[in-house]
Design a binder for these strands. Structure first.
Lengths: 346, 346
DNA sequence: ATTAGCACTCTATTTGCAAGAGTGCTAATA
DNA sequence: TATTAGCACTCTTGCAAATAGAGTGCTAAT
């Protein structure tokens, strides 16, 4: 029982700190915990908790603040189980219903919703097609000296680029070039395509050498683009309202991290080694990336078409509402596939 | 002559204030102006300038600070003519040479360069094709129940979208639908297309009604997207280094303005009524949009293919290096077309 | 085991004071 | 007449001491 009470007090402290961002004193907890306990008793328990490494004192006469270890214990054992209210669900559903027109927009809007509900920075990583293969190349007419090269991959990604047609090549030639390229490399990945020798592609000699070069380049870029994941951010401005970012240095630090897409990818990948399912919570210095070591990250993976996966995540000060945020991300990860399907397009 | 000296002093004050962000006293000017004049004389002149509305005193015993009117006079008559050094030109040229692969990237990189050179926020508005017309629609095969709709506009914009093929429609039907739609509306703008009655499009009845709906929707969206201008931002983080944004409220204010693309468009459009050519400088409260009334904007228009136009702009505190910034934007506006051409694509 | 009481510690705020920077004015100067 | 030196005055900034407040730790009583 004595043990049990300690955790109740710890929870009360963390809950309060999450809400107020101020160090908590024994009086406050004695009042708010609802345990019918005097401040002196709370002080004793707090002293124990500090010795156990769960609490820290900014200075002797301030209240106490949860340590990393406390947050960890909190999310693992203490916090009330993540639930999301019917009301929130209804709001989210309604939000999507009118707004979404393309897959890109699903991600963008999801980022906005998460940011809005969590009051932190949200990150939505669009899925990464780890192996994508070339399906076909086709040219469409544009004008006398330009054509549109359209590349289609087997995961349904389509990209186009305008290319110049050199003199002496007519549209029929282009069609044959497209056919020849397609025949040669359909089903190949980027790596394979990089190694191919294009000489002797056509059975007859054409003056269209540079068209081939350019077309192959478009093909390659499409495949590369397809496997690159893109990160959609939300709430980057509102995060500055959080008291921990009053200090403009910290604010700038965070913002410059958010500006670097590659860094963000690394940060999120790091937490991924764990399970591929469920939520991963990384707290404070558990994260190895400088610049956000006083921040926590909650991330979850989602599926699209039951197969390819991306991530939704929230980044904010360690003092974040882990429960609420987990609930929202948990809902989103289950929901996002359905929303994507609803726009009749993958 | 007396007049002439006043302006020299005013210029010295503004130059110094732009460099230091601190109110300037008479001693400083007496030393730096190079006029061989005592502080007392400068004080008299400054007193005059204040009465004329060019200077302001934060408080009695501080130095003085340029007013909006002073900045206006400075950019109109006082500042040294904008020049950009050979060195800078070389740097910029070299920057582009390797980086740029697509038109989108030209804008993105341009924003980065401008931000880097001016140490302020840069804005690059991609061109707005005010009237764009539908050229043709084509379907490409994807799999049994999906196809790719490709729309081409007469300004060379290409967009694609995946659509579902309802049962009972085969690919040949799709081709005929595309042909019919193209015949019906080639050369039309969005407005015209919105008014068209699509019933009776096909001479025979097809079960592909929803395909037509969806295809028309894609056409419409393409035309709309083509005329929508997109804004590329640069330097949004580094601007926080400027002393005027130490105050985190101001910083947040600015950042939330920058987050709203539509607001930015409005802000830039406002200054556009003037000439279509050359540089437009909007100083402080000359700008009517709240949230950036202590900022100035320098903007210039550029041409692409000698016809469609977009904008490059710099946004920062009123205390900005108008001369340098004008020079850089002036160079960019002349340069951007050439860079775009260099990637062999419009 | 709990709690009331009290001395102690540390921060944050206020107050007063001196230094510094800059001005405005007046009288002397070229 | 324009310029300048000199000086009193004002206002900010920085610093130190004093004060109030919040919270703790310990002891003794319950």
């Amino acid at each position: 029982m004595a043990e049990e009470r300690k955790w109740q007090i710890l929870r009360a402290i963390i809950d309060d700190y999450i809400a107020t961002a101020e160090p908590i004193g024994s009086r406050t907890i004695a009042r708010k915990s609802g345990l019918g306990i005097s401040p002196a008793t709370v002080r004793n328990e707090m002293s124990d908790l500090e010795e156990m490494g769960f609490l820290e004192q900014p200075h002797t006469s301030a209240g106490r603040v949860p340590s990393l270890k406390a947050y960890r214990y909190y999310v693992d054992c203490l916090m009330s189980p993540p639930v999301i209210s019917e009301q929130d669900i209804a709001f989210i559903d309604n939000w999507y219903r009118n707004k979404v027109r393309s897959l890109e927009e699903v991600f963008q809007e999801t980022a906005k919703i998460i940011a809005r509900f969590t009051r932190n920075v949200s990150l939505v990583v669009s899925p990464q097609f780890s192996q994508c293969r070339f399906r076909y190349l086709q040219f469409l007419p544009l004008d006398d000296d330009r054509a549109i090269a359209v590349v289609v991959t087997d995961n349904g990604l389509v990209e186009n680029r305008i290319i110049n047609i050199p003199g002496g090549v007519d549209f029929a030639d282009l069609q044959r070039i497209a056919q020849a390229i397609t025949n040669r490399i359909a089903g190949q990945t980027v790596e394979a395509i990089n190694d191919i020798d294009w000489r002797g592609l056509m059975d007859c000699t054409l003056p269209g050498g540079e068209v081939i070069d350019r077309a192959v380049q478009v093909v390659r870029q499409t495949l590369l683009a397809s496997r690159r994941q893109k990160i959609h951010l939300g709430g980057t401005t509102q995060i500055l309202d959080q008291p921990e970012f009053r200090d403009s240095n910290r604010a700038r630090n965070l913002l410059s991290v958010l500006e670097e897409e590659r860094v963000l990818c690394d940060i999120l990948d790091k937490g991924n080694e764990d399970q591929g399912d469920g939520l991963i919570i990384t707290i404070g210095r558990e994260n190895k990336f400088s610049g956000i070591q006083d921040c926590s990250i909650v991330q979850a993976t989602y599926r699209l078409n039951g197969q390819t996966v991306g991530k939704v995540a929230v980044l904010g000060p360690t003092r974040m509402e882990y429960g609420r945020i987990s609930a929202i991300l948990g809902f989103m990860r289950r929901h996002i596939d359905e929303v994507a399907r609803r726009i009749g397009q993958n």
